[in-house]
Simulated assay, not measured.
Amino acid sequence: MIPRSISTFTINLRTIHLFFIESTGHYCYHSIAPLNSCKKPDPLDLRNHKDWLSPTEAIKIFETLKDPNSTLNVLDQLSKRKDYKPTETLYTTVINNLSKVKNFDGVEQVMKRIKFEKSCRLSDEFFYNVMRVYGLGAGRINRVIETLLGMPGYGCWPTAKTFNFVLNLLVNTRNFDVIHEVYVSAGRLGVEIDVCCLNIMIKGLCKNGDVDAARQVFDEMPKQGCQPNVRTFSALLHGLCENNRVEEAFSLLTKMESEGVEPDTILMNILISGLRKNGRVEESIELFKTMLLKGCEPVTSTYQEVLYALLDSRKYTEAMKLIRKMSSKKMVPGFNSYKSIISGLCEENRADDIDLVLKQMIEDGFVPKLAMWKQMLQCIISENTSVDKLTLKINKICY
């Protein structure tokens, strides 16, 4: 039997030895404890963690990883532990980590692992996040569609929000050839078609140039128990205006107002732009005035469209007034608008007005290009003014 004094001495020395290891991270004495390595412990090696990790502690490991590239390695180590109990939150954290470093192949590996493990129930929100990663982060549209259509295989069915997200993504990325395939899958996915879904379909058909098909979807909406809203009318009006069917657009506007749907700023912008682009400049200006009377508050793009209309019709005095009004509302016209108005004023030899516009242009952060300076100087010189008067006008413009 070992004497008590020797045993106590050994235990105490071992305690001191272990304290030294924990405080310095180095091993320097090997005769008492069977130590296997002289390296610092790897913080990513889960064997250094305590015997039992709760789900919250496991998630914390991934949330605090300094290098998200190590996510798959840590997940592989975690999955070999007896206490491995993955949850939806854990999977989401892993996928978001991989998304941060654009490891989208790794995301696909995790999705395969999830399907194989079948260890927890997943919600629609989880798949919505995955599809955002695939679609908006990776641009892997096929994976988005596969994930949506494959949700029942995970024991989960999409909500209208998730279904409509996919439809809208397909429209915005102009994947028109697969939109109908996804749309008709609503029934077997348990998704009830709503107004938002039909609005997206109308927008997609209009973007694809099939306005007549969009009109058919619009006409069928009441039969599906859906009432068109201002977004519905905006999508269809935009399609009609883009295809030079302005008269139909205004007929639709009349129908909209008769059904008690109030136009908003977006819809009025569409009509003003549509009229201007179809050469109906005066009507676009009148519509803007009507918009103000209806209490529909214009935004920068509205003023910009009207400014273009005024410039198209060479109404430079009105254009100058509109620019001043925009400035009072902290709105800035585009550079091309200033370029057009200065060019027009020069053509009409309105040198006195040029300096007013030029000063406003500079206040809005724009600097005239060399060709504009030449045009302005030629306008001043063409007035046959004296040298003193010419110098005065140049100083007035520049300062």
Rank of each mutant, 00 (worst) to 15 (best):
L189D: 03
F104M: 06
I342M: 09
G153M: 03
A33C: 02
E88V: 02
C398R: 09
L287V: 06
Y308L: 09
I141Y: 07
D212A: 07
E318S: 03
L148V: 02
E383A: 00
N336Q: 05
L356N: 05
D353Y: 08
L44C: 07
G274D: 08
L356K: 14
L18Q: 08
I381V: 09
V195D: 09
P263Y: 14
D364A: 00
T391Y: 15
K102E: 15
N164D: 12
W52Q: 04
V230E: 13
Y91L: 11
C197M: 09
T265W: 05
Y128Q: 08
F335W: 08
S327W: 01
S5H: 13
T385R: 13
W373S: 01
I11T: 10
M268Y: 12
K369M: 11
L252E: 07
L271G: 01
Y338L: 06
I141P: 03
L237H: 07
K39C: 03
L271D: 06
L267K: 10
S386Q: 03
R280Y: 03
Y399H: 14
G209N: 06
K277S: 04
V211S: 06
N142W: 11
N278I: 07
C206Y: 13
L253G: 03
A33R: 03
V166G: 08
D352P: 00
Y303A: 07
T254V: 10
R324M: 10
L122G: 00
G334L: 15
N199M: 11
R174H: 07
V166Q: 03
K289M: 03
S70T: 11
S382C: 00
L356F: 11
C197K: 09
N48Q: 13
N172T: 04
S327L: 02
G25L: 11
M376D: 00
C206W: 14
S79C: 00
I285R: 05
Y29D: 10
R324S: 04
L345G: 02
N69W: 13
I200W: 02
N229A: 01
L18A: 04
M131H: 03
I381W: 06
R350Q: 10
G209T: 04
L240K: 05
C379M: 10
L148Y: 12
G187K: 15
S79P: 01
K277T: 04
A33Y: 12
